[in-house]
Design a protein around this nucleic acid. Structure first.
Lengths: 147, 147
DNA sequence: TATTTTCCTCCAGTGACTAGAGAATTATGA
DNA sequence: TCATAATTCTCTAGTCACTGGAGGAAAATA
């Protein structure tokens, strides 16, 4: 019932530096320390961290999670605010899916039509260079490559 | 046929500091300057910037775009490399769409089932707190809020 | 000419981590 | 009990692709 940051990391499936980062920005509370200043956690920390992780997976940003956590910490409030956050996020996800599907179509066309010849006739390059293409205001966020 | 950075920004629909940033990282070449050191561009710059912008919209990262641009600059090479980049990106997009659709389903369920009561019975909070939920390895990148 | 607009460089900040240095602490095996 | 190995500590800096501001100079307009 008092385990290390590494153990917490394993149990909640979150990296160790990420836990320290969450503590630093106030998402995770400061916790007990050993005499040697090492952090020790209990099961509540696992639950909270799992909550955060899950919310991150669902694409909520830290600020939204902060609100969600404060709601969870004070469970007698009406949940309209939590619902609102989730609803906003849902609309965002819908927009994103639509954008990605348009993107997919274009990429597919590019790849399919590439004649595997010289660059001068390459459809991939052609398509990208085509300024007559309709520009949507939608923008995809950067992709973080992870192993 | 020699316009300012602001005009280029308008023509390619890219912000002014972004153009300077692209020059700094070598995506856009250094360009002519006036006596007073102000940048001047021609139509080639518009085309190149539009190419970059379009590629970014399609979710290519800067490194991929660098490769694509070097291919475009040297159009006698085989286009297998460009095709490969686009193919990799297509697979990535497919994965992303699948992930977002799972996410969407979960969010929808959360919102639909929220009884608009107290937080203690809120489905949104419940779902997020539920550690029995199956954790996928897929992770959505952070959302940049833009106006 | 006077004013306004646009431009310049440089530096710092964003979000959500991730990685590394260098030292201290804890756990394990003989 | 001690040596060693694994883990942890703090602190700093780096990632990506920009974005914004300060303070000043140049260009465009009235």
């Amino acid at each position: 019932m008092a385990f290390s940051i590494g153990e917490l990391a394993r149990r909640a499936d979150v990296k160790v530096p990420t836990i320290r980062y969450y503590e630093q920005i106030g998402l995770m509370p400061e916790t007990l320390r050993t005499e040697g200043q090492q952090r020790r956690y209990g099961s509540a920390a696992v639950a909270r961290l799992a909550f955060i992780r899950h919310a991150r997976e669902l694409g909520f940003d830290i600020d939204a999670i902060r609100t969600l956590l404060s709601l969870q910490d004070d469970p007698d409030q009406p949940c309209a605010r939590a619902d609102e956050i989730a609803t906003i996020r849902l609309a965002e996800v819908d927009r994103r899916i639509a954008g990605l599907q348009a993107l997919r179509k274009e990429l597919k066309k590019m790849v399919d039509e590439c004649a595997q010849g010289r660059v001068c006739d390459c459809q991939v390059i052609e398509t990208l260079a085509d300024r007559t293409h309709s520009h949507k205001s939608w923008k995809e966020p950067a992709v973080s490559s992870r192993g």
